[in-house]
Structures are given as C-alpha cells and as structure tokens.
Write a protein that binds this DNA or RNA. Structure first.
Length: 542
RNA sequence: GGGUCGCUAGCUCAAUGGUUAGAGCUGCGGACUUUUAAUCCGUAGGUUCCGGGUUCGAGCCCCGGGCGACCCA
C-alpha cells in the first residue's frame, strides 16, 4: 500500500509525496483528479471527498480496497499470452459448449458485466474493438476471488483473465477464468452504451468516443490508412519527405492571418506557419527535385464545418513538371487513397452515399465557366465597375481591399460550384492578382497557371506551375506588401531570403497543396471536427 | 457578424411560473452456475451552465455572460 501510494503521487503530483503520508496523499490526489474537469475543488479536509460524484467516490474506494486485499489496481506488468484478436482467430468456429484445454492470459476493458450468484460474465474489449467473453465460476476461482470480482470490478476497468478457452452454452467464445487481476482501475463511469453521446462530449472527450463508438475507431483508422497511402504513393514516384519550419521568423506561402508567438531566448516575434511552400521551394532550389511534406499549418481564423485553425496539409513539388502534370498526379494520389480505404475508386460514406472518384476528372476554366453562368463574357480585362455590379446583384459585399481577381473568385464560388454536382472538378487558370506565387499563363493575359480541385462543393486541393522568375516574384510580393499597407491583414510579406533563393535559380516546377483533413471529409462524408482526432475546443469554463 | 435552438443526476432525456425537480441506464444492497441493453426486490444520486433581475413563488419569464448545434452573410 505504501509503495503504491507514494509511486502514484509521484505520477500525479510531482515530487511532493512523502513516505507514510498516504492519508493526506489520498485527499490531494482527489484534487489532482478533480481539477481538470472542474469538479468541486478538494481542499484540505479528507471529508471533502464527499463533494465528488457518488460513483467516483465508490470507485476510488474500490481502488483502495483492491490494494488493501493485495491486488494492485495498476500493476506494471501482466502475464498476457494472447491478444483477444489472436484468441478469436485461433478458435474461429467452436461448437456450443466446447472445452479446448487451451490456457490463455488475456486483457481488455470491461464493456459488459453480468454477475449472477456463482457464475459471472464480462465482455472484454481490446483497443482494436475485438471482444471476448470472460467467465468466472465459483468452482474455478473460489469464493474469495469471485466475491472480489463482483465487488471490485466495474464497467470500464481493464482486467486480466487467465483460463481455458471455451464456448458457453449460448456458443459465445469465452475464457473460463482460473484467476483474474485488475489491469487498470477506472475511476469514472462509462457513458451509457445504448444512447449516443452528444456531439460536444464526443469531441471534448474523444477517448470516450473511441471507447464507445466503432465509427470513431473506424475514422481514426481511415485517417491512418490515408496518410500512410499518400506517403507510399509519393515515395513510389520518387518523392522524398522533408520537414520544414513550423516556427518562422516571417510567415508566407499563403494569404492568411498567422498565429503569433515569442521566442524568449531570441527576444523576438515568431509566427506559426500558414504554409510550408516557401521552404519547400528553397529545397527545390537546393536540388531536391521531388519533395513533399505532410504536416500542420496554422491559420488564425474561425472554425466551421470545413475549417480548423490547425489543419494537416500535404504539399509536394516536382521540378520540370507543370500544373497539368501535377493535376494528374493529384488525381492519382486521391484515387489511390480511396482504393486503400475502400478497395475501389468509389468512396462509400457512413450514411451509405457513394462518391465516384474514378476515371479522369473534368477540367473547366474559371473565367469560361463563370462567363457561361452569368451569361456574359468575363475576362481579366473586364472593368472593375462591372465586376462590382455583378457582385452586388447577388449580394456579395465587395471588401475595400479586394482586388479584381478576388471579386471574380467570389462570383465563381457563388455561381459555378454547385453546377459541378459534387463531382471532382479541376478549375483552371486563375486571376493573376490573387496568386502571387504562380507563374503567368503561357498564352493568356491576366491569368496564371493555377488550378483548384473541387470535390463535394469545397476546395480540396490547389496546384500551380510555380513562379520561378525572381524578378517577377519580387514585383508580386511588393504588390502584396502594398496591399498589406492598405490594411489587408492577409497579404503576403516580402521574404528577402526566399527571393535570394529564387535568384540562385529554381528549375521550372509544379507544386500542389492537398488538405488532408478535407481529403478525409471527402472520403468519409464527415465534418472536419470528426476527421481530426482532437480538434481545438474552447475550455468548458472561462 | 446576424438569427434560431440547446445546456437539468455519471450518461441519455422528462418536468402549464405553484408540493420535496422525475425516468431509463449506470451505481449501491439483496436473489440467481449460461448471461448478451439479463430478470426480480430494495435503494441512493442534483451548484437545473454562470451572474443579476421580476415575482408571494423561477429549471421555466427578463437582462448580461459562457459553451455548443444549425441556418444566414
């Protein structure tokens, strides 16, 4: 008891534990447990334990009684011989009421309990969702052990069971225990298994979501599969994965507001990156001709069902490729990811709807499709006054810092995107004044070689023929700086080191950015907060 | 940014401005050696998100704040 108590204090409280201070420690420990979820703060008196929810008090008491009876509630090691999945696969289809004489040691979380007088049942579940039944009979474990099981094991506890693999009289594959041990005592009750938790709790306490809901485990697994496949797909095409700075002295590579932080040691302002683009291009300048990065970007703006302040982004760059070649590669990456998850290029969402990602994807021109939608020719030369009239006609409020291209893009989003009907579509050839890092179109004035990929009505990826002319790039960034001076908080900064890299010569290159969270949304049909395991949530109390 | 709705026991939810805020599951005590959301008997569990206000009386009405969902921009 003493050893267990002091070691626990070290974990929970740091170094304040003293040998023999178990009574005090127990009270302080309650405070340590209670604070994170804002339960009543336990102060000095041991009696204030009564302020905790009843069920938690009872479980804390069981934890203590386990220790008192020589059962460590949190043992360091257990003689496990099989995973639950291994037992299931080793004994796939036993007849009802079979004895195998195979002795195994297994562990899992208790998800279901049925305690009767002399024979107890429990369903144990492993983290992968596989389950097996444990049975404890008076005849096999004896009166004391059975009584302790009934008194001290709750739903949600991790337990170890050692015994024979059998099937019950109902045919359930089971381990008939010779002995049992607590693997980890749970101090809080699980949610009701048969009612869905509300969305807020599911996201704030994702660990409970993962325990209770197979779909949550499935989502986590799908993300793992997709990210892994994207890496394989790129590596098989000769790309190398590199890591570029998250903390930057100057943010760039996108138009967005950054998070700002400070370095104490350098006594200077730093930015969390809004995109890795400018560093990946530096790598291309250095001769890394096919590079990619999958990592987090941070943008200091609101959250909704398609936006998160931090989100995972894939960017990849290929020397001597242009934006059309990059579009093909992007389509293949997404199709290969879909195949890895579904074994098909057709994604099947949880609600059963299917999204066909197969075959070639159409390419439509931004200006052409917009012209068709509004019934008049729109070009980069269309006067600003006319663009504003068209915007006002559909109640788009034109911001004071908007350049013409921005108005065109807003008109496009308003008029055209729905016409794609969710089908993957590359929208090509964007306005030059909203794309400062993109090469001028090889044949069309006022446009750049850029595409956006729309799937299911939202932007899934973007690709460029990269601007590599350092003189033009400098002009573009100076224009951005001027926008910034006029109050556009999202305008790009003049990054002299990036320009210096370009001045050393960057080969003609294609580049792509793919939102990983959005790719998961595309494949699963879920909102962005479901594709991210632990999305940012505001604290429950101010 | 605007609007609508919501926040009550560990969880999921009830409750015309009017008795002591209820139910199911969970928990606790008891019965049961084949249970699958077991069944049966008994029982406990509450800062009604927070702070003001109106009222003889507020979970409910009013004001402010917090958190969330949905819709609109």
């Amino acid at each position: 008891m003493r050893v267990e108590c002091t070691s626990k204090m070290t974990v929970v409280m740091g170094a304040t534990g003293l040998n023999g201070a178990c009574a005090a420690a127990s009270t302080s420990m309650l405070a340590a447990y209670a604070l994170p979820l804002a339960l009543p703060v336990v102060t000095t008196d041991h009696d204030e334990e009564l302020d905790l929810p009843e069920q938690m008090r009872i479980r804390l008491d069981k934890r203590k009684r386990l220790a008192d009876q020589g059962r460590d509630p949190y043992p360091v090691a257990l003689p496990i011989t099989h995973t639950i999945a291994a037992v299931r696969s080793e004994f796939p289809e036993l007849e009802i009421d079979t004895q195998t004489s195979a002795i195994v040691g297994i562990a899992g979380r208790v998800m279901f309990v049925r305690n009767t007088g002399k024979l107890c049942f429990a369903t144990l579940r492993a983290g992968d969702g596989t389950e097996i039944q444990a049975m404890l009979s008076l005849a096999n474990v004896g009166q004391d052990s059975l009584d302790q099981w009934k008194a001290l094991v709750d739903l949600g506890d991790h337990v170890f069971v050692e015994g024979e693999v059998i099937t019950s009289k109902r045919g359930e594959l089971s381990v008939l225990a010779n002995s049992w041990a607590m693997a980890a005592k749970s101090l809080r009750p699980l949610p009701v298994a048969h009612k869905p938790m509300n969305d807020d709790s599911r996201i704030r306490q994702r660990y409970l979501d993962l325990i209770m809901r197979p779909e949550a485990r499935q989502m986590a697994q799908t993300r793992i599969t997709v990210v892994s496949q994207v890496r394989k797909s790129l590596e098989s095409r000769g790309y190398f994965e590199i890591e570029t700075p998250m903390l930057q002295t100057m943010h760039g590579g996108a138009t967005a507001r950054p998070f700002i932080t400070t370095s104490n040691a350098f006594d200077m302002q730093l930015f969390l990156r809004i995109a890795p683009e400018l560093f990946l291009k530096r790598a291309v300048v250095g001769g890394m001709e096919r590079v990619f990065e999958i990592n987090r970007n941070f943008r200091n703006e609101g959250a909704d069902s398609t936006h998160s302040p931090e989100f995972a982004m894939l960017e990849f760059y290929q020397a001597y490729a242009d934006y059309i070649q990059m579009a093909h590669t992007t389509r293949e990456l997404i199709q290969e990811a879909a195949f890895a998850v579904f074994g098909s290029h057709v994604a099947t969402h949880i609600d059963g709807t299917q999204l066909d990602l197969s075959g070639e994807w159409p390419m439509v021109s931004l200006y052409g499709s917009l012209s068709e939608a509004v019934g008049e020719q729109i070009t980069p030369q269309t006067p600003r006054e006319r663009l504003i009239e068209l915007a006002n006609a559909v109640e788009i409020e034109v911001g004071s810092t908007w350049v013409n291209g921005k108005i065109v893009e807003e008109l496009f989003e308003h008029h055209v995107i729905e016409r794609f009907g969710g089908r993957p579509t590359f929208v090509i050839d964007f306005p030059v004044d909203t794309s400062p890092l993109t090469r001028d179109h090889r044949s069309q004035d006022g446009k750049v070689e850029k595409w956006d990929l729309y799937i299911n009505g939202y932007e899934q990826a973007t690709g460029y023929s990269e601007l590599v002319d350092p003189v033009v790039q400098r002009e573009r960034l100076i224009e951005q700086a001027a926008l910034g001076a006029r109050g556009d908080v999202e305008a790009m900064k003049l990054d002299e080191d990036f320009l210096r890299a370009l001045e050393h010569g960057m080969p003609p290159s294609g580049g792509v950015g793919v939102g990983i969270d959005r790719l998961l949304m595309t494949l699963t049909g879920l909102g962005i907060r479901e594709t991210i395991l632990f999305p940012l949530v505001k604290p429950e109390q101010a």
